[in-house]
Design a protein around this nucleic acid. Structure first.
Lengths: 126, 126
DNA sequence: TCCGTATACTTTGCGATGCAAAGTGAGGTG
DNA sequence: CACCTCACTTTGCATCGCAAAGTATACGGA
């Protein structure tokens, strides 16, 4: 049971996991989702546009939360860190996404109610 | 122009406005989107499941960012604070939502690639 | 009229967090 | 052996969210 009563607080969205709901970490999770076999530190850095320090920190957080598995090893003779989603990580991310989708739907519906330009949603010229 | 090069950092999502991208504030924005005529302090508090203190703080942030307009007045002889989205607030929230939608799509696509249960995601219309 | 309670917020304090900059260490290269 | 690069980690700080305490006014009895 959620901490806040959904019946009385329909916009609390407390299913939005703090650990996941963070710009950088969202990117990381999505990247890892797209690459179930794992990604290297350097690749993630590129994909998510993060600095070394920040990536390191965020990975640590995700790992401590049990969402990703970080494997430190050596490729040739250089250190090589590889990351992949854990099963729990994948599941929790999907749960998170479901909530997020609900939010987007709520908002879109709200926007549509009296919108002059619903067109913005979904057909934004990126 | 985004700070991070989208060509090389497709998962940076730097369009996710920090002010909006916050659990509580997302709820507030969505609530206000659904009630374009404005909402009272107490209503927002209920809808978003926030304490007085937190609501006050978040509204202040949103107001300073020019996303919401806060009107303090008196209803009868009790203080009555009413909030509504500004035009800019509405626009920026829609922009934010567009990015968010993109993210959900990315993730859903990634999940679908090798997913056993896309069904979890309420069957996103790709 | 005084006291207590309720409403309607605001302010304060602090622990957690994200981010940038500096640090570490192992390889290669001239 | 000095120097640079790669691959991360650690540190420091400034910001932020959150809960608890504070302020102010109104109402309802005794």
């Amino acid at each position: 049971m959620p901490k806040t009563d959904a019946n009385h607080a329909p916009f609390a969205y407390d299913g939005l996991d703090r650990v996941i709901h963070e710009k950088s970490r969202l990117g990381l999770m999505t990247s890892l989702m797209a690459h179930p076999k794992g990604l290297a530190f350097a690749d993630l850095k590129q994909l998510c546009g993060l600095t070394d320090g920040n990536l390191s920190r965020h990975l640590q957080v995700l790992q401590e939360a049990g969402l990703v598995e970080v494997t430190k090893g050596y490729e040739g003779n250089r250190p090589h860190t590889s990351c992949r989603l854990t099963k729990a990580g994948r599941r929790r991310f999907l749960d998170y996404l479901a909530v997020l989708e609900g939010l987007v739907r709520d908002a879109a519906k709200a926007a549509g109610k009296e919108a002059s330009t619903l067109s913005r949603l979904g057909m934004l010229p990126t």
